[in-house]
Design a binder for these strands. Sequence first.
DNA 1: ATTGACTTTTACGTAAACGTAAACTAAAAT
DNA 2: ATTTTAGTTTACGTTTACGTAAAAGTCAAT
Lengths: 128, 128
Amino acid sequence: MNYYTISQLAEQFDISTRTIRYYEERGLISPIRTESGQRLYTKKDRAVLKLILRGKRFGFSLEEIHEMISLFDNDRTGRKQLEKTIAYGEQKLKEVTERIEDLMQLKQEMESILADFRERLQKLEGIE
Amino acid sequence: MNYYTISQLAEQFDISTRTIRYYEERGLISPIRTESGQRLYTKKDRAVLKLILRGKRFGFSLEEIHEMISLFDNDRTGRKQLEKTIAYGEQKLKEVTERIEDLMQLKQEMESILADFRERLQKLEGIE
DNA sequence: ATTGACTTTTACGTAAACGTAAACTAAAAT
DNA sequence: ATTTTAGTTTACGTTTACGTAAAAGTCAAT
């Protein structure tokens, strides 16, 4: 296995090292350390970071993202745990679905407004 | 035409009056005033407020929302203005479309993870 | 007319999500 | 060997999006 340094990841995702350390502060990511204390990130850590950034783009808070990440934790073996996780996942899935529908409606509206503007432009060009 | 008071709108959207005044501070909404200085909101102001809140749910910043609202400004009569507005609108539309696609991918992933968890649960229940 | 609910401005406070600087150590390059 | 460059912690600063409180004016109801 090979590792990434913090600045490599920062460059790859175009974020600051401070941001990555901050995510660690908040418990979202947990890189291993070298003897001297340097952080080393695995592919999995990288994937988690990717998830975080995607979540952010969707307007989820770090706290929400934190919860969602725990969905991917494979340590949930017990039946009760599994059931809770599934219930939580179903709820989050519903939220995402609603958000998609909302966005699609917004898209529709923007398209109709644009169509209206284009029509106006046409008329203006007809005069000239 | 009839008007809404600030607290009426606040109640309707379940937000604080401070929030509404803050949107005004930032130039997102511009209610008229009574002689004594009270704010009065028209249906149109209400619609703008609705837009703002929806934008927020999508994770747009107030600054971005501000720009998007200007799309709905009907004061853009000049041809150049119209062209600029259309170009801006097309770009925003693209962003929204990308966001939808991104979200749909997330949805897929969540569904497959959930399917996996459900399968595990089934196996656990088979044992018992 | 007076109580109480509502509104106004001004202004300081706050949580989230980092930015930035200092002071220091380790690694890499010359 | 010694500069650079990259990394660490600690800690204070900053922006966004409001919350909250004070002081004063206004509207609605009894």
